[in-house]
Computed example of a mutant assay.
Amino acid sequence: MTLITSESKGVYVIAVTPFNEDGSIDSHSIDSVTDFYFEKGADGLTILGMMGEAPKLTQAEALAVTRQTLARASGKVVVVGVSAPGLAAIEELTKAVMDMGAAGVMVAPPSNLHTNEQIVAYYSQVVEALGPDVPVVLQDFPLSTTVQISIPALGQIIEACPSIVMVKHEDWPGLAKISALRQAEAQGRRRVSILCGNGGIFLPEEMLRGADGAMTGFGYPEMMVDICRLTASGDIDRARDLFDAYLPLVRYEQQPGVGLGARKHVLAKRGAIRTATQRRPGAPLAGDAIQEIETLITRLEKRLAELG
């Protein structure tokens, strides 16, 4: 079993959870979308994240999705989101998925944390509950969780909790936070892997600030793979040219309430999943939105052909 570490790098795609039109889980598409992500160059997957509609799943469904994804991944890295309001639920789900062969778990802070002291104490309790052998990803996503983790508080957590080996960075604006983490490491603090979210909208800049890769979703995951590869090799201009081609569609996905529908539409169009269905509550895309996405795809593919 491969576990994530503080040296983990690359693209760990946030996987969608596919549903049939009646809202039941589409088991066939779990296999096809898992294959799709790895065929496009992903180094790993992260399942049961916010854009994986995890809060809409029952515990039994979450375990079933994890079991099937791990089986299809055939030993490749799969991180599982286990965020929940209480530690008992986090501990129970973590034990189950780690026993199945997960590479680690991701935990976002609950929205009732308001002070640095509360946030630091919370993550100390999380790692104590899970034990020292479970690698943990700290999800720093204040736009969704409403929890603002300051740079000093994040540093305290890293120092106090060695099993937190990765930060899923999606603060916004947050480039300075990446620089501060790397500067602290240069001064002797232990290293953590930094993988970035927010649909990749700042990925070139994040990589240049010292991020190790991406942990987010997009209808064209190969974009993130290429941007990470090109920036790591020093071909910054090529990375920016390629990113600019994808940027209109990346931007479209940033719309609250529309982004997941747009992503699922693109994945369905590309054959990764059978339908773009979201589990309720979740409205299907309106016709004009679908037409806008189709226009963006057409323009994207034309531009990619021009770039070679």
Rank of each mutant, 00 (worst) to 15 (best):
M1L: 09
S6F: 04
S8A: 01
K9E: 14
I14C: 14
A15C: 11
V16M: 10
P18A: 04
P18E: 05
P18R: 03
G23Q: 04
S24K: 06
I25H: 09
D26F: 10
D26G: 13
S27Y: 14
H28N: 10
S29A: 09
I30M: 11
I30A: 12
E39N: 02
L45Y: 09
E53I: 14
E53Q: 11
P55R: 06
K56T: 11
L57P: 08
L57I: 05
A60Y: 06
L63T: 12
L63G: 00
T66V: 02
T69Y: 07
L70N: 00
L70H: 00
R72C: 13
S74G: 11
K76F: 12
G81L: 06
S83V: 07
A84E: 02
A84L: 04
G86Y: 14
L87Q: 00
L93R: 08
T94L: 00
A96I: 02
M98S: 00
D99C: 09
M100T: 03
A103D: 01
G104S: 05
V107T: 06
P110I: 03
S111L: 04
H114P: 04
Q118Y: 07
S124V: 13
Q125D: 14
E128K: 15
E128A: 14
A129Y: 04
G131Y: 02
P132M: 08
D133P: 11
V136L: 06
V136R: 06
V137G: 05
D140M: 08
L143G: 10
T146P: 07
V147G: 03
V147P: 15
Q148E: 14
S150I: 08
A153E: 07
G155R: 10
Q156L: 06
I157S: 02
E159S: 15
A160M: 00
C161M: 08
P162D: 03
P162N: 00
I164W: 06
I164Y: 01
M166L: 12
K168D: 03
D171R: 15
D171Y: 12
K177R: 15
I178M: 06
R182S: 01
R182Y: 09
Q187C: 13
G188Y: 08
I194D: 07
G199N: 00
I201H: 15
E206R: 07
T216W: 03
T216P: 02
T216V: 12
G217I: 08
M223T: 03
M223S: 00
M224A: 11
I227P: 00
L230F: 12
L230R: 07
T231V: 15
A232C: 06
A232M: 06
S233V: 00
D235Q: 12
I236K: 09
R238I: 09
R240H: 03
L242Y: 00
A245Q: 05
P248Q: 10
L249Q: 07
R251E: 11
E253L: 13
Q254E: 12
Q254W: 05
Q254M: 12
G259N: 03
G259P: 02
G259S: 05
G259A: 04
G261E: 06
R263A: 13
R270N: 08
G271H: 12
Q278V: 02
Q278T: 07
Q278L: 15
R280I: 13
P281R: 08
D288L: 11
I290A: 04
Q291T: 15
E292Y: 04
T295H: 12
T295A: 13
I297E: 12
T298I: 13
T298L: 13
R299C: 09
L300N: 01
G308M: 07
